[in-house]
Design a protein around this nucleic acid. Structure first.
Lengths: 106, 106
DNA sequence: TCATCGTTTAGACTGTTGTCAAACCATCGT
DNA sequence: ACGATGGTTTGACAACAGTCTAAACGATGA
C-alpha cells in the first residue's frame, strides 16, 4: 500500500456552512475576557460611566483600561464622548440587542 | 517631593461590582473562537451531529475537533453520546437559552 | 502656563489557546 | 483474536492576548 495516511488526516474544507457574521465574532471575542465583561457590565449598569469611575472600580492601569475600552468600542458595544476634561463611556444597547438577536438564531 | 507617582498608577480593587456568573464566562469564552462557533452552529443546525459529519465539514484534524468538542461540552453547550462505533454530539438548547437569558440581563 | 485626565506607543513578561502528530483506547466485522 | 475504523489523550509548539511599566502626547480647564 502507499501510505497508512497517518492516524488523523485533515480534510479539505467544504462549502462554508452558514458562517457566523463578523460582528458576532468580534463581540463574542470582546466578551471572552472576564475583565472586559465586567467593565461592560459596569458601563451597562449605569448606561454611562466616566473613565475615572471605571478606574476606581477595577485594579487596572489607565493604559489597560484604555485598551479594553477601545476593544469594546471597536466592536460597537460602547461609545465614548468627551465631557469637558473627562471621557464618558456609554453602552450601545441597540448593538447589544442585535447581538442577542443574532445569537438567538442559532 | 517624594515621587511623581508615575504616569499611571493602578488602584486597589473595590468590592466586586456584580461579577458575572462563571458559566456565562466559560460559554463566552467557548464562543470566542470562530471555528468553535461554526462547529456549534453546525451541531445546533441539525441539533445532533456525528463527529464524522463534523470532520467532513471542517478542515481540522480529529484531535482538534475532539478538543473543541470537549470545550463545548465542558461549558454545557453540547452533550456527547456513543452510538456504536460513533459519537453523536447534541446541542443543549436549554443551556443556550439560559445563557441568552443571562446576557439579556446586562 | 500648569495641572489633570486620558490616549497612545513601545517593550517586556506571562499565561492561554489553537493546532498538529503520534500514540492510545473503543467498537465493530470477520 | 485481529485488524480496521472512529475518537481521545498527550506532548509540543507557535501565536496571541492581557497586563504592566514607562514615557510621550493630546485635550481641557483653571
Amino acid at each position: 500500500m502507499s501510505k497508512p495516511s497517518g492516524p488523523t488526516t485533515p480534510r479539505k474544507a467544504k462549502g462554508p456552512t452558514a458562517r457566523p457574521k463578523r460582528e458576532v465574532l468580534t463581540i463574542s471575542r470582546a466578551l471572552s475576557d472576564p475583565r472586559r465583561f465586567e467593565i461592560l457590565q459596569h458601563i451597562a449598569a449605569k448606561s454611562c460611566a466616566a473613565c475615572s469611575d471605571l478606574r476606581g472600580a477595577f485594579p487596572i492601569t489607565a493604559a489597560t483600561l484604555s485598551h479594553h475600552l477601545k476593544e469594546l468600542e471597536s466592536c460597537g458595544l460602547i461609545e465614548t464622548s468627551r465631557r469637558g476634561k473627562f471621557v464618558d463611556t456609554t453602552f450601545c444597547r441597540p448593538a447589544w440587542e442585535a447581538y442577542l438577536k443574532e445569537l438567538k438564531k442559532i
